[in-house]
Write a protein that binds this DNA or RNA. Structure first.
Lengths: 238, 238
DNA sequence: ACTTTTTATTACCCGTGAGTAATATAAGCC
DNA sequence: GGCTTATATTACTCACGGGTAATAAAAAGT
């Protein structure tokens, strides 16, 4: 089926795929190193020389994989955004009322904020990007904001959330969540999971109509958010 | 009283004071212009040439008032911090229960976030500062965090706030508030006052034990923040 | 073994913007 | 007016870091 000639000596395809994979692995390694350094020192203070140094290569080698420093920044952001797109799609496709979706969104978003690529969504400055890339980022941010408002509006419509201003509520919730990206650090007392659980309850309790099952403050029987469920592969380039 | 000689011709003090005042006014003008530009474009993209240009002077003239770009950044931050210190001191001196203090804090903090110098508290990066200044900033941030937690703990003790984890609650509240500094812009639909009123209620309702007096949201008896009170003149050069 | 392509290195360019030196101008002061 | 001090300008230095050119080393393909 795969138009591969029955070649008993050496298949040219395997090596080809290997090479592609190796390349992508290197790309990813660059991004992992870069996002860490950018978060650590800030985009402007971080130099490509140091990124390269941490990878045991030299600066120009990076240009085999990326066109510019800004390109690297954008790709870091894109990886984080991909995560967000993934769980939003999953929640959208789930069968819950508005409050349930909002809780799930808060939970997943909180977890993402505790990752490097997730934090980059809020700690990187879109103004460091080219106009074209900045436009993409702004559109994505609007999309996230719209999702928050949509779930809230949905919850008001289905009666699970009490009437309120979706805009204001979304700002307040997103603010708490985005702030995680600024204070969370691995190895601290709070685990991403504990934070996500706490915030999922804390940021939605004020909006819920029913105050049911408030007794067991920990572990509400609320619908668990499926963690990394079926994520849309979203195979961009490659 | 003020060892000033009874001089009927011309008091040498007045002109002297005038010059001091003129100088301070210019200093402030630089800071106002700089904070705007820094917020607009980000600290690294903003150039002192452009700051000067907006003031109809040239770059070296700025060095009559500030030692460095970083110095300007720090002073902008300090003006914002001064506001915060002001209303925290006022609330501390007020006679309210923990919940009342927390509400007042949220209200004032929200208003401050809608100002240029207030926004600079969260939009400027301490890593752009000298180690010494960065230390000052970090200490101040810890102080604000401690204040949030203190009011919450106080509220739990006096029964106005239901038992919860002060650390988590403070993070959630501060996050919402700090985020204002990122999305608020003058001339939008939402006025600082409306935001402050809404957030003061929204961010504390989940913590309150009694759900009383939910109606009159506006104008907590919170004291006004004193503006530019006695600041150490900090007469640098000349 | 030879050629081609990929990946990396060394050595450089060069724009940028903070900060300074030398100097002119204006204002205060007697 | 004449001296002094404050304030501004023009013209410059210089470190830094992103990006490129030329080229070497390595790997893949035949």
């Amino acid at each position: 089926m795969d138009g591969r000639p029955a070649n008993d000596t050496t298949s040219p395809w395997m090596p080809f795929e290997n090479r592609r994979r190796a390349r992508d692995e290197k790309r990813e390694a660059v991004l992992r190193t870069a996002v860490q350094l950018f978060l650590e020192q800030g985009y402007h203070r971080a130099t490509l020389n140091e990124v390269a140094e941490r990878l045991n290569i030299t600066k120009p080698a990076l240009y085999n994989y990326f066109r510019s420093k800004e390109d690297i920044l954008f790709e870091c952001w894109a990886l984080g955004q991909e995560q967000v797109d993934g769980f939003i799609a999953a929640i959208d496709g789930s069968r819950q009322n508005g409050l349930g979706k909002l809780r799930a969104l808060v939970h997943s978003y909180a977890e993402t904020m505790a990752t490097d690529f997730g934090a980059s969504l809020v700690r990187f400055d879109p103004r460091d990007l080219s106009p074209s890339n900045a436009k993409t980022v702004r559109a994505a941010k609007r999309g996230i904001d719209r999702t928050f408002r949509r779930y809230i509006t949905e919850g008001i419509a289905d009666g699970s959330i009490k009437p309120c201003d979706p805009k204001m509520a979304a700002f307040a919730i997103a603010g708490s969540l985005n702030w995680i990206g600024h204070w969370y650090q691995r190895g601290g007392e709070l685990t991403p999971d504990a934070i996500a659980d706490d915030f999922a309850e804390r940021l939605t309790e004020g909006l819920a109509t029913a105050t049911v099952n408030k007794r067991p403050i920990k572990q509400p029987p609320a619908p668990r958010t499926k963690k990394s469920a079926a994520r849309a592969p979203t195979t961009k380039k490659k």
